[in-house]
């Protein structure tokens, strides 16, 4: 519709076409929003992802348990003295994803390691107490994590994530 002359001198007609086109674009964008937003977690799923509390008393030294929070397995390991020492004395420079053990546990609760048990490579579940580092071994592609859940060997790029959690007492934590 736009001719050479009207391009130089915008006319009322051009304004009308641009306004209508713009309104159509705004309407289309506003329509797409709910069509995409519906894919996000629904209110029931979000509510079910509320924090959970875990009692630590039944977990003996050297043992670990797996609990689920937001559909993810959380490893809670009661570490032995040996595991703690190993984790603390590793030189940070030798780690692919350098992080001191103290940054991965709550101070004063060195014996408790709480990590999300999902391999940072492609999402498989590593097996506890396996591999060469007294930690976790992922059977899918051979990533190995140490007793602090840090990546030591294999294709995974990062340490096992630590979920948000806090000690409510010495024997009870709240995850989330």
């Amino acid at each position: 519709m736009t001719t050479a002359s009207s391009a130089d001198h915008p006319t009322r007609r051009d304004f009308l076409f641009v306004a209508t086109g713009a309104a159509a674009a705004v309407g289309a964008a506003a329509t797409v929003w709910p069509l995409v937003a519906q894919m996000n977690p629904d209110a029931a799923t979000i509510a079910a992802g509320a924090p959970i509390q875990v009692d630590l008393t039944p977990i003996a030294e050297g043992q670990d348990i797996k609990v689920f929070w937001r559909g993810k397995p959380i490893y809670i390991s009661h570490r032995t003295k040996k595991q703690i020492e190993e984790a603390q004395k590793v030189p940070l420079s030798s780690l692919p994803d350098p992080q001191p053990d103290s940054a991965r546990v709550k101070s004063g609760h060195d014996q408790w390691l709480v990590v999300i048990g999902i391999c940072t490579h492609l999402g498989c579940i590593p097996i506890a107490h396996e591999g060469n580092y007294d930690g976790f071994f992922c059977p899918c592609h051979g990533s190995q994590y140490d007793s602090s859940g840090r990546i030591r060997q294999g294709p995974a790029p990062a340490n096992l994530a630590v979920p948000p959690y806090a000690f409510l007492s010495d024997t009870k934590i709240q995850i989330g």
């Binding site: 709910p34 937003a37 519906q38 996000n40 629904d42 209110a43 799923t45």
Partner: peptide, 13 residues
């Protein structure tokens, strides 16, 4: 009912 109550814009859809 869950669509209408909990899904984002589920009532609209």
């Amino acid at each position: 009912e869950l669509i209408v109550r909990d899904v984002n814009y589920g009532w609209l859809l």
